[in-house]
C-alpha cells in the first residue's frame, strides 16, 4: 500500500509543477536505481561482490541504442534485443566466473568489464570508438513516440516498479532464500543439497539481465552512450549507490541511487572535487549506519511506530 501510494505520488510530480530539470534528475536516478537493485541481488543476497557491473549496464546501452538507431525505435523490440545479448553473454561468462568467489570473482568481473570497455573503443564500425554511439532516437511504444521529459519519466517509473516487485518476489522465494543461505555459509548450503554453482550462475544471469534493462532506458534517455559507460569507475559508482543505501534490502540501493544522483548534482555545482565531498558523506553514513540509508529509515520507522515492528 505504502509502496503503491509512493509510486503514484512520484508519477504525479511532473504534473504538480516540479521543474523539468528535477524530473530529468529523477529519471536518471530511477534508472540507476534499477541498476543498483540488480547489483544488490549479487552483492547483498548472493554474497558475490563485483567490480565490473558496468559491463551489463553498458552492454545493454550499446545493444539497445545501436538496434534502435539502425532497425527500429520500438522500445520493446530494442529491449528484447538488448536482453538477448546481455543475458546471452551473462549465461556464457557466468558459467566460468561463478566457479570462483570472493576476491577472485571481484577481479575476474572487473577484467571482463575492462575487456568490453576496450572493445567499445576499438570496434569503431559499430561502436564509433571514443566518440560513442550517438543519434539514438526517442523510443516508441505501439507506434507512439515517448517524449523526453514527463513521458519518459513515467516509462522509467513503470519499469522501476515492475523491477522492484519482481525482484522482491524473487528474493522472498525459495530460490531467493537459498541465495541468502549461500551468502551466509557456502559450505553449509552445499551440505543441504543446494547446487551452489548453479544458483550463483542463475543469480549472475538475472542480475545482468536486470542491469541490461537499466542500460536500455539510459541509452534512450541520453540519446546515446560512450565507452565510459563500461568503465570501472562506473562499476565503482553503482557499488557506492548500493552500499550507501544498504545492501540486502533492494529498497536501500534504490534510495542509494537517488541520493547519489542528487548529492552529485548538488556537490558538482559547489565543489571542484565533488568526489571528495561525496566520499566524506559516504564514509560518515556507512560508519554510523553499516546498513546504509535503509538502516536509518528502518530505525526512524521503528521510533515512530514502535509497536509495528
Amino acid at each position: 500500500m505504502l509502496f503503491a501510494a509512493g509510486a503514484i505520488a512520484l508519477a504525479a510530480l511532473p504534473y504538480a509543477g516540479v521543474p523539468p530539470f528535477t524530473i530529468t534528475l529523477l529519471t536518471e536516478a530511477f534508472i540507476f536505481a534499477i541498476w543498483a537493485m540488480s547489483l544488490d541481488l549479487l552483492v547483498g543476497y548472493t554474497g558475490l561482490v563485483t567490480f565490473g557491473h558496468a559491463a551489463a549496464f553498458g552492454l545493454g546501452s550499446y545493444a539497445a541504442g545501436y538496434f534502435a538507431r539502425e532497425v527500429t525505435a520500438d522500445f520493446f523490440a530494442a529491449l528484447l534485443v538488448a536482453e538477448a545479448i546481455v543475458v546471452g553473454l551473462a549465461v556464457t561468462i557466468g558459467f566460468v566466473v561463478t566457479r570462483v568467489s570472493g576476491v577472485a570473482f571481484a577481479i575476474i568481473s572487473l577484467a571482463i568489464a575492462q575487456v568490453l570497455f576496450q572493445i567499445a573503443i576499438a570496434w569503431r564500425p559499430v561502436t564509433e570508438g571514443m566518440d560513442g554511439l550517438v543519434g539514438v532516437p526517442l523510443p516508441k511504444i505501439a507506434g507512439f513516440t515517448i517524449d523526453a521529459g514527463a513521458e519518459f519519466y513515467l516509462l522509467t517509473i513503470a519499469t522501476l516498479v515492475l523491477v522492484y516487485l519482481g525482484l522482491s518476489r524473487l528474493v522472498a522465494s525459495s530460490f531467493g532464500r537459498t541465495l541468502q543461505a549461500i551468502r551466509t555459509n557456502e559450505e553449509r548450503a552445499a551440505a543441504i543439497g543446494i547446487n551452489v554453482r548453479l544458483h550463483k550462475w542463475i543469480a549472475f544471469t538475472v542480475s545482468w539481465g536486470v542491469a541490461g534493462i537499466g542500460g536500455t532506458l539510459m541509452v534512450f534517455m541520453k540519446a546515446g552512450t560512450t565507452p565510459m559507460s563500461l568503465h570501472w569507475s562506473e562499476s565503482g559508482n553503482v557499488l557506492v549507490m548500493a552500499i550507501f543505501g544498504g545492501v540486502g534490502t533492494l529498497f536501500g540501493p534504490m534510495i542509494g541511487a537517488v541520493a547519489f544522483v542528487f548529492l552529485r548534482d548538488e556537490f558538482t555545482t559547489r565543489f571542484e572535487a565533488w568526489q571528495l565531498a561525496f566520499g566524506l558523506v559516504f564514509v560518515v553514513v556507512v560508519l554510523a549506519f553499516p546498513s546504509g540509508l535503509a538502516g536509518i529509515f528502518a530505525r526512524a520507522w521503528r521510533a515512530l511506530w514502535p509497536t509495528r515492528s
Binding site: 518476489r169 524473487l170 522465494s173 525459495s174 543446494i194
Partner: peptide, 10 residues
C-alpha cells in the same frame, strides 16, 4: 523447491 522463483518461501 530450491529453484522455485515465484512462490514465497514462507
Amino acid at each position: 523447491q530450491n529453484l522455485r522463483m515465484w512462490r514465497r518461501a514462507s
